[in-house]
């Protein structure tokens, strides 16, 4: 019983932390893109305002049960990945479920969300959302390959599938995995572009064409849950990358610095690149990133 209270308490605290940090990252993202496009752009806390506005709005129509289950599925993904991924190394922060699941489990949980959202979008009956979902799933099949190659390379090299062990190895050896298995890091980094669905791969929710794709028919409370889940999931993914490749953080400030520096990469890369069509993005992910993945595996096998 004590253990359950411990986990729920830990879950609430890490949710709030992830939510605030995630939302601020989103806000900063909008601010920085605006600045680069040499316009002022909304204040950094603009996302907070949007989220709270959406939360408080009153939705008058719904399209059935699945539309309620869709956002719930996404929330499950983001919260579960948040609980699985250790936030600070040497479990200085709440241990949550770090010791219960491993990388393969995490891989599947991260795939669970988009499928859930797709089901919700499908129920709404909006053709745009259906098209958006097909593109999202195709792209996912694309970027999963380099992502899995990178993870498998790590697993082989250090003979473990649990994130906590990988983090501890980096802390003990003092060398970040970013340098000891560079190809894996490269492949994972390029796969991250696909995960965040920023510019080059944002055909899924292409605003002009599909009216924000899968989320197009959801407003109010559904959008509120989706946006908060999105931000929490973004934070979770960033901490995962930090844990795997940058030796995790011993306190929250270092965590924020590392995650934000990592977050800069997809954001800045997104601003300058055009939008790929779906098959181009799928072919892209099976091109260079997969090559790096293969190199990572070969590297892991022989060193």
């Amino acid at each position: 019983m004590h253990e359950i209270i411990q986990i729920t308490w830990g879950a609430i605290v890490s949710f709030i932390l992830a939510f605030t940090v995630g939302i601020t990252y989103m806000g900063l993202n909008r601010k920085i893109t605006a600045r680069i496009q040499n316009r002022i752009g909304p204040p950094w806390y603009q996302n907070f305002i949007d989220v709270i506005k959406l939360g408080s709005k009153q939705t008058s129509i719904h399209h059935g049960v699945m539309q309620h289950m869709g956002p719930a599925f996404i929330m499950v993904t983001s919260v579960m990945s948040l609980l699985i991924i250790p936030i600070l190394n040497q479990n200085r922060f709440f241990p949550n479920l770090n010791f219960h699941g491993d990388l393969v489990f995490l891989l599947y949980i991260m795939v669970f969300g988009p499928l859930g959202m797709a089901l919700g979008a499908g129920q709404t009956g909006n053709p745009n959302s259906a098209i958006g979902v097909t593109r999202g799933l195709s792209q996912m099949a694309g970027f999963e390959i380099p992502w899995v190659m990178a993870l498998v390379a790590l697993m082989i090299q250090y003979k473990t599938t649990s994130i906590v062990d990988l983090m501890n190895i980096q802390v003990e050896t003092g060398k970040w995995l970013m340098f000891s298995s560079p190809f894996a890091f490269l492949a994972a980094l390029l796969a991250m572009l696909g995960m965040f669905r920023y510019a080059p791969f944002d055909i899924v929710g292409a605003p002009q064409e599909l009216a924000s794709g899968p989320m197009s028919e959801n407003g109010g409370k559904y959008l509120f849950v989706m946006m908060s889940a999105g931000s929490v999931f973004a934070f979770a993914k960033l901490t995962l990358y930090v844990d795997l490749f940058m030796g995790g953080a011993n306190n929250l400030i270092i965590l924020v610095v590392k995650t934000f520096s990592l977050y800069l990469f997809p954001m800045l890369y997104g601003i300058v690149s055009p939008r790929y069509r779906t098959e181009q993005s799928v072919r892209y992910f099976w091109g260079w990133p997969s090559l790096f993945g293969l190199l990572a595996i070969l590297h892991a096998m022989f060193f």
Binding site: Q58, S60, I61, H62, G125, N126, V225
Partner: peptide, 19 residues
């Protein structure tokens, strides 16, 4: 999601969408 605003949301067929 379901409880919030349960009273005044009504089911609408898939023809009533904001495409």
């Amino acid at each position: 999601l379901t409880v919030k605003g349960w009273k005044n949301t009504r089911y609408v067929t898939t023809k009533d969408i904001s495409s």
